[in-house]
């Protein structure tokens, strides 16, 4: 049921290592010293309130946002010191599901799904349609969806197409920004299964953001919670709701009363 499993001897260098990551937009501090380790070949789930900087963290790791300070290491190598080419090489092995899908609306669905494979010239355009149909089937979409444009899809369908696109090139590290938000419960479980499959079968490292605790327990080996720009707790995803950390437990149980203040006014 759970993704937790023994994957042999743990390699000592984490896949992703964050130390003292800081980012402010203007005078609004979003990340205030984030420290986090993501184990290679494992699935990390990040929790945190809306606007707490989860998406910004992912964008920093991917180099889409330049952090103000702090260390980002991938496979033990400092991303900040890498050449453009080395960064590209890492991005080539990375998949990303954006929170809003970010599908290219000028391209049909099949081209979206196979975009990376086509860009890397790993398949021809003739092969891409079959490949897209295969990837779409994995996320529960019919092959005929491939010929539609993204604007013709429902929100949940767009999310699933974006997911198919993120994993189509069989990446080494995959980031999922709220993979199951906006999906019905059954489809949510299917997607969770797909993510677990990517980690277990392909040996990928997954880094997911989710607000859904059932999903967090299903897909996560490890979990961490971000609050006010810092990681306030990290541990096993299975203990969520019963971690002993009052803030995390309040969050995981979705309780109104607790140490996390409801900041309705800013």
């Amino acid at each position: 049921m759970s993704a937790v499993s023994d994957r042999g001897a743990e390699s000592s260098t984490p896949k992703i290592r964050l130390r003292g990551l800081r980012k402010a937009f203007g005078d609004k501090v979003v990340l205030d010293g984030v420290d986090l380790d993501v184990r290679a070949g494992h699935s990390m789930v990040i929790l945190g309130g809306s606007g707490s900087g989860k998406s910004v963290t992912i964008k920093c790791i991917l180099g889409l946002i330049t952090p103000d300070s702090g260390l980002i290491e991938i496979d033990g190598r400092d991303v900040g010191k890498m050449s453009h080419r080395e960064r590209e090489a890492i991005l080539d092995r990375t998949g990303m599901l954006f929170q809003n899908g970010a599908l290219f609306d000028s391209l049909p669905v099949w081209e979206n799904v196979c975009f990376k494979l086509l860009a890397q010239k790993r398949i021809t355009r003739a092969q891409a349609r079959d490949k897209a149909a295969e990837a779409l089937a994995q996320v529960g979409l019919a092959a005929s969806v491939g010929d539609l444009s993204p604007a013709e899809l429902s929100g949940g369908m767009q999310k699933r197409v974006a997911l198919a696109r993120a994993v189509a090139a069989q990446p080494d590290i995959i980031f999922f920004d709220e993979p199951t938000t906006g999906l019905d419960p059954i489809m949510g479980a299917v997607i969770d299964g797909l993510i677990v499959d990517c980690v277990q079968r392909l040996g990928a490292t997954a880094f997911s953001i989710t607000h859904d605790m059932a999903s967090a327990r299903r897909i996560g080996d490890d979990a961490a919670m971000i609050h006010k720009g810092r990681i306030i707790w990290a541990g096993s995803a299975q203990t969520l709701g019963d971690t002993g950390n009052e803030m995390v437990d309040q969050f995981a149980r979705g309780e109104r009363e607790g140490p996390i203040q409801m900041e309705l006014r800013k």
Binding site: K59, L62, E88, N100, F104, D105, A119, Q120
Partner: peptide, 16 residues
Amino acid sequence: TMRVTDQIDALTTLST
């Protein structure tokens, strides 16, 4: 539109 909907960032993550 591509910028504000993250499509430009998505290109970067798709080896382009």
